[in-house]
Amino acid sequence: MEKIVDYFSTHTDEYFMLLGQHIGISILTTAIAILIAVPLGVLCSKKAMIQKVFERFFGLLRIVPSLAILMICLPILGTGIKPAVVALVILAVPPILMNTTQAFLHLPAATIEAATAMGMGKARIFFRVKLPLAFPLMYAGIRTAIVEVIASATLASYIGAGGLGNIIFTGLGLMRVDLLYIGGGSVAILSLLTGFVMDRIYQSATKYQRI
């Protein structure tokens, strides 16, 4: 316990730098994953063929452990943040993709028909009606993804991408349990906290469903 307190007083700057890196890499990854998975999910909801192809593809990728993906990326992308982001994006895309596909497949047909009949154009219907109605399920996918990414970003430290994983790997190297607690604990708390904040946003954004 003392050692833990000691670490925080001597390594404050380093700790917050690593924490910042961890959060940064998680946000970057999730953002890239959203940019890939949401349009792809919309596309999948329109064409059953495309949906099959991508679900298989990402289903397969998911079986490969993140660490293995990291290692495969290494010779191609070198060390550092790039291979880490690629590996984490591969991890984050499937839940967002699947949920987006399902969300757009199950939009209320009568509401879309009413919107069309009122004289709303395609783009307007997409942004004002379809997207908001698909949002809850999409958001649940994003939440799953971000929490997974935060946990898995720990591994990324192994190939020099920084983040809280550094503390853990240092702890492993030096056989210092206190560092493992600090590193592991921080990642866990960050995950939980993110999940909690995401849930609060979800609650207020979907109030209309539960009154």
């Binding site: 509401t111 069309t116 709303m120």
Partner: peptide, 21 residues
């Protein structure tokens, strides 16, 4: 069709209100 529909009111059998509005 979009311009045409703006001049035609339509009450759909299944109501179809926007649940998020």
């Amino acid at each position: 069709p979009v311009q045409l529909r703006r001049k035609i009111g339509y009450v759909i059998q299944q109501i179809g209100l926007f649940p998020h509005m």
